[in-house]
């Protein structure tokens, strides 16, 4: 035991001596490890030795070893604080700290996708799921099943790019309504985002390809009031709670009754008769909608006496243009990064 005590005293002295030569954190760590390393530190080795002692002696010897441990721990931590306080490197850098930091760099989503997801998320929260369909469609799905008789002038409102007599580039996302209703039984509550095509020469407000979001809800007892409730909630969430909205009669072959949805002009709020955004009317057309035409339901073998539904559709670029006051629709497909990146990263 005396032997142990002497050894410990020597260890303490050696430690103190070693510590007095320590000038930096690295050498402090080295000195510390000689005594406190979990595997080969002096303290650890001493404790190993204790295992061989008889229990009655082990307790006393343990105290001695612990006193060494305490001694080392205390001095190391004290010196550590001291070193930390005195070393010059505690400052991040000599000189100008206002220099720019190192920012992460990441790519930006396309504004149309960003806006599309904004729209999707509102409808997902209302219990809608997302459907998709082909961009190259047949005349049947794009027109006939949606209650456009062949050779009906209503088709003129949807200027079409044709692949063949029967194949065309879908002029709206509405054919996906038909596909979904063919595949599923009601209740159905879907939105359909996607590319659509029109035979239009690009100009500030027209493009031969743009994005639409279509919506459809079919169930027993769906009413025009439900259509209004759903779209009002959607628009107020997308824009702001106090947004003025009006539903106005219109015509689409696949809905009856049909409604155009106008929202107040975000720029002049109806207060400028010369407003170039709304033309002074105070209103801006934002959505087409209506109750699913009974003929459309019949075309997919859903009994219109039992079920009813509403449908709606909107152009994504058009809505984004209005929301952000973008004057030209073509900007979305120039993919100028100075434009695209604005919408998520400055």
């Amino acid at each position: 035991m005396k032997d142990l005590k002497a050894r410990i005293e020597k260890l303490k002295r050696d430690f103190d001596k070693a510590l007095s030569g320590v000038k930096d954190e690295k050498s402090l760590q080295e000195v510390r490890n000689i005594y406190l390393s979990r595997k080969r530190g002096a303290v650890k080795l001493l404790f190993e030795e204790l295992k061989a002692l008889k229990p009655e002696k082990r307790a006393q010897a343990g105290q001695l070893v612990n006193s060494l441990k305490k001694h080392v721990v205390a001095k190391v931590s004290r010196l550590k604080v001291k070193l930390a306080a005195s070393k010059p490197g505690v400052r991040a850098r000599k000189g100008d700290l206002t220099l720019p930091g190192v920012r992460g760099y990441w790519g930006a989503p396309h504004p149309v996708v960003l806006f599309q997801q904004k729209i999707e998320n509102i409808f997902i929260a209302m219990g809608f799921s997302i459907e998709e369909g082909p961009e190259i469609e047949t005349d049947y799905y794009n027109f006939e099943a949606l209650n456009f008789p062949p050779h009906h002038p209503a088709r003129d409102d949807w200027d079409t790019l044709y692949i063949s007599d029967d194949l065309l580039l879908r002029t709206h996302t509405s054919p996906v309504q038909i596909r979904a209703m063919e595949r599923r039984k009601p209740p159905i509550r879907i939105i359909v985002p996607g590319k659509v095509y029109r035979r239009e020469t690009p100009d500030p407000t027209h493009l031969p390809m743009f994005y639409q979001v279509e919506g459809l809800a079919v169930d027993k007892g769906i009413t025009f009031a439900d259509l209004k409730g759903t779209l009002e909630h959607f628009l107020k969430t997308l824009f702001y709670e106090k947004l003025k909205i009006r539903f106005r009669p219109s015509f689409f072959p696949f809905t009856e009754p049909s409604a155009e949805v106008d929202i107040e002009c975000l720029v002049c709020k109806g207060k400028n008769e010369q407003c170039r955004v709304c033309g002074g009317s105070g209103w801006k057309e934002i959505l087409g909608s209506g109750m699913v035409d009974p003929q459309v339901l019949k075309n997919v073998n859903i009994d219109p006496e039992q079920y009813s539904g509403f449908a709606f559709g909107m152009g994504i670029e058009r809505t984004a243009m209005f929301a952000y006051q973008i004057p030209d629709m073509r900007y979305f497909f120039e993919n100028d990064l100075r434009f695209n990146r604005q919408f998520s990263i400055k």
């Binding site: 790519g107 961009e135 497909f333 993919n335 990064l337 695209n340």
Partner: peptide, 11 residues
């Protein structure tokens, strides 16, 4: 995250 920007082009 790898620094690529998303674009959309006409079909």
């Amino acid at each position: 995250n790898h620094g690529f920007d998303e674009v959309l082009n006409f079909s």
